[in-house]
């Protein structure tokens, strides 16, 4: 459906000009445009940021930098992303929406929309991604802080997301439960484990679509770091902790009771995959 309330469409070519355009009442950024079209609200003015050079995938000593208007397809087809941490981001993206939508959807758009069912958010939480945004000056903050503080402010432009480099002995996994391959998640979960000299030195576990937006489960992660080794028993214990720790509720897609079961199963599978990857030296 076309957007009858929209009366103005502007194409700024730099961030300062875009921010200035956003000062209008009911102005909104458009990048891929999916959320603008599906959920226009009272938007009357669209600020198209695709003319600002914010697209691209690059690596440096600290990790990978993904420009905000990079499409999901560009990420799926990127060798840099495929080589990153055993290809866990690529795996997640194959679960995300359809190729038709992935050709439009941008990483910045999906992080700003911050849908509760987002597959990107739980994975980026466990990776410890950092989000860069512009509000007159550039800021870079951890993704959890971005969602806690920054993103609900007026007039910010997300410019990039940074995925950190990890030492050898680190693996991550992503699991999605949905009714069909293309449906949004009933529940998803992600995990990351770092093993140093045979001991688990860092572990992060997150769930999303529960049904609220993805969040970390610190107690479940602590089960791993306190126990040290990644054995089947400890994985089962972490999964049970995650089940108890997760804040779960009902919605049209699933009952809370079903979701709680999925948390345990999902975390167990994710950690099982990580154990296999670490043992295989991936």
């Amino acid at each position: 459906m076309s957007l009858p309330k929209v009366s103005e469409f502007v194409r700024p070519t730099d961030l300062a000009a875009a921010l200035h355009e956003l000062e209008s009442v009911n102005a909104r950024i458009v990048a891929g445009g999916i959320d603008v079209v599906l959920f226009p609200g009272d938007t009357t003015k669209l600020v198209d940021i695709s003319g600002i050079p914010l697209s691209g995938i690059n690596s440096d000593a600290e990790g990978i930098v993904i420009g905000a208007t990079t499409t999901m397809t560009a990420l799926i087809e990127s060798p840099l992303i495929a080589d990153y941490l055993g290809g866990v981001v690529t795996t997640m993206l194959h679960h995300l929406a359809s190729p038709l939508q992935r050709n439009l959807a941008t990483i910045g758009g999906t992080l700003i929309s911050a849908h509760p069912w987002s597959d990107v958010i739980p994975l980026f939480l466990v990776l410890g991604a950092r989000v860069s945004y512009y509000d007159g000056t550039e800021h870079t903050v951890p993704i959890a802080q971005f969602y806690a503080e920054s993103m609900f402010r007026q007039r910010i432009i997300l410019t990039a997301v940074r995925l950190p480099a990890f030492p050898p002995g680190t693996a991550a996994a992503f699991i999605k439960f949905s009714r069909t391959a293309f449906d949004i998640a009933v529940l998803n979960c992600a995990a990351l484990v770092q093993i140093t000299a045979g001991r688990c030195t860092a572990a992060r576990i997150a769930v999303g679509g529960a049904p609220q937006r993805g969040y970390l489960l610190p107690h479940a992660g602590e089960v791993l770091t306190k126990s040290g080794a990644l054995t089947a028993e400890i994985i089962a214990s972490a999964a049970r902790t995650a089940r108890d720790e997760a804040d779960i509720s009902d919605d049209m897609r699933a009952s809370a009771a079903y979701r709680r079961n999925l948390v345990e199963v999902g975390v167990q599978r994710a950690l099982g995959q990580i154990k296999d990857k670490l043992e295989a030296g991936v």
Partner: peptide, 12 residues
């Protein structure tokens, strides 16, 4: 690249 034209703004 194949896209859903219902999600694309013509102005873009």
């Amino acid at each position: 690249r194949a896209v859903n034209s219902c999600l694309v703004l013509a102005a873009k």
